[in-house]
C-alpha cells in the first residue's frame, strides 16, 4: 500500500506543479510578460499525469496547443516551460514556439500543435515509424472533442485503424470547443462511435481520478505495444478557465462551473491520499517544494536572455541554403 501511496503522492506533485505553473503563467500574462495565446489546462491535470504515467522511455506524445500540462507531466522542467512562455532563448523551443508549441524531445514530447486536427495524422506517422522499425514504442495523441469534427482527425484515425498502428488517441472532452458546447457541434454524444468506424477499440470514462486515467490508458498502451492496434479513448473533463486568456467564458453559468469544481482532480487526489494515510505534512512538503520550483522557474525565465535572431534563421532548415541573416532574408 505504501508504494501505491508513494506513486499517488508523485501524481499529486505533478498535478500540483501543473496547476501552480499555470496560475503563475496567468499572472505573468496579466503582467504583460507573456504574449499571444495562452490556453490553460487547469481542471484537466489528472489526464496528463495519469496518461504520462502509463508510458515508458521511447514512447512519443503529441498534444494540441493546450500543451503545458502534458509537457510538465512528461518531465520537462518548469524553467524551460516558463522561459518559453516569456519568449526566452532558454525556453523549450528557444522562444520560437511559445505557449502553443512546446517541444521536448528528451522526454518524448513531440509538440504542441496549433491547427485543430492537424497533428492527428502526424502522430499516426510517429506510430507508423514504430511499426516500420519494430521499436515497440507507443504514441499518444491528445486532442479535444472539437477536433473530432474536422477532416484531419478522420484521415488520421482512418489510416491508424487500417494499418493497426501502435497509437492511443485520447480525446479530452472538456465540453466546449472554444465557446460552443458539444451538443451544438456533434450529432452524437458518445464520441467512441466515431472511432468504431475505423475499426479500433473504444473506451470512455471520467478523467477526474488520476488512478483511473492511469489504469485505463495503460490498458490501451499495452494493447498498442503488443501490436493489437490503436484505441480511441474519450475522457470527460472540464477546464476551469476560459478557452484562452482572452475568453471570459460567458457561455457557461457560474453554477455550472462551481458544480464542476466539486470534481477538481487535485481535491480528489488529496482526499485519496489522506484516506491512504498520507499526512498533512507529506502534502505540505510537496506543495512547498512545488511552490519553490515554480518561483525559481519564473525568476530564471525573467532573468534569461531573449530569443536570438541567429536561432530564428538557423532553425528553419537543417540544410544551410536558406537565408542566415537579415540581409539575406530580406532579399
Amino acid at each position: 500500500m505504501a508504494s501505491g501511496r508513494d506513486a499517488l503522492l508523485e501524481h499529486y506533485r505533478a498535478m500540483y506543479l501543473i496547476r501552480r505553473f499555470e496560475e503563475e503563467a496567468a499572472r505573468a500574462y496579466a503582467q504583460g510578460k507573456i504574449g499571444g495565446f495562452l490556453h490553460l489546462y487547469i481542471g484537466q491535470e489528472a489526464i496528463a499525469v495519469g496518461a504520462a504515467a502509463a508510458l515508458r522511455e521511447g514512447d512519443q506524445v503529441f498534444q494540441t496547443y493546450r500543451d503545458h500540462g502534458i509537457s510538465l507531466a512528461l518531465g520537462m522542467s518548469a524553467e524551460k516551460g516558463m522561459a518559453e512562455l516569456m519568449g526566452k532563448d532558454t525556453g523549450c523551443s528557444r522562444g520560437m514556439g511559445g505557449s502553443m508549441h512546446f517541444f521536448d524531445k528528451e522526454h518524448g514530447f513531440m509538440g504542441g500543435w496549433g491547427i485543430v486536427g492537424g497533428h492527428v495524422a502526424v502522430a499516426a506517422g510517429a506510430a507508423f515509424k514504430s511499426k516500420y522499425l519494430g521499436d515497440e514504442n507507443v504514441t499518444l495523441c491528445f486532442f479535444g472533442e472539437g477536433a473530432t469534427n474536422i477532416g484531419g482527425f478522420h484521415e488520421g484515425l482512418s489510416l491508424a485503424g487500417l494499418w493497426k498502428l501502435p497509437i492511443v488517441f485520447i480525446c479530452e472532452n472538456n465540453q466546449y470547443a472554444m465557446g460552443t458546447p458539444m451538443k451544438r457541434t456533434s450529432a452524437i454524444s458518445d464520441l467512441t462511435l466515431k472511432a468504431q468506424g475505423y475499426g479500433m477499440h473504444g473506451d470512455r470514462f471520467e478523467g477526474y481520478d488520476v488512478k483511473v486515467v492511469h489504469e485505463r490508458v495503460k490498458q490501451a498502451v499495452d494493447r498498442a505495444r503488443k501490436g493489437e492496434g490503436p484505441t480511441f479513448i474519450e475522457i470527460e473533463t472540464y477546464r476551469f478557465r476560459g478557452h484562452s486568456m482572452s475568453d471570459p467564458a460567458k457561455y457557461r453559468s457560474r453554477a455550472e462551473l462551481e458544480e464542476r469544481k466539486k470534481k477538481d482532480p487535485l481535491v480528489i487526489t488529496k482526499d485519496q491520499l489522506q484516506q491512504a494515510g498520507a499526512t498533512i505534512e507529506d502534502l505540505d512538503n510537496i506543495e512547498i517544494q512545488v511552490e519553490e520550483a515554480v518561483k525559481a522557474a519564473v525568476k530564471a525565465a525573467d532573468d534569461a536572455e531573449p530569443a536570438k535572431e541567429s536561432v530564428m534563421f538557423d532553425s528553419v532548415m537543417a540544410t544551410k541554403l536558406g537565408p542566415q541573416n537579415r540581409e539575406e532574408a530580406a532579399r
Binding site: 513531440m110 492527428v120 506517422g125 507508423f128 515509424k129 484521415e155 488520421g156 482512418s158
Partner: peptide, 14 residues
C-alpha cells in the same frame, strides 16, 4: 491530408 501527415510524423521520428 492523412498520408502527408503520416509522412511528416515518420520523418520527424527518423
Amino acid at each position: 491530408a492523412g498520408f502527408a501527415g503520416i509522412g511528416i510524423g515518420a520523418a520527424m521520428t527518423g
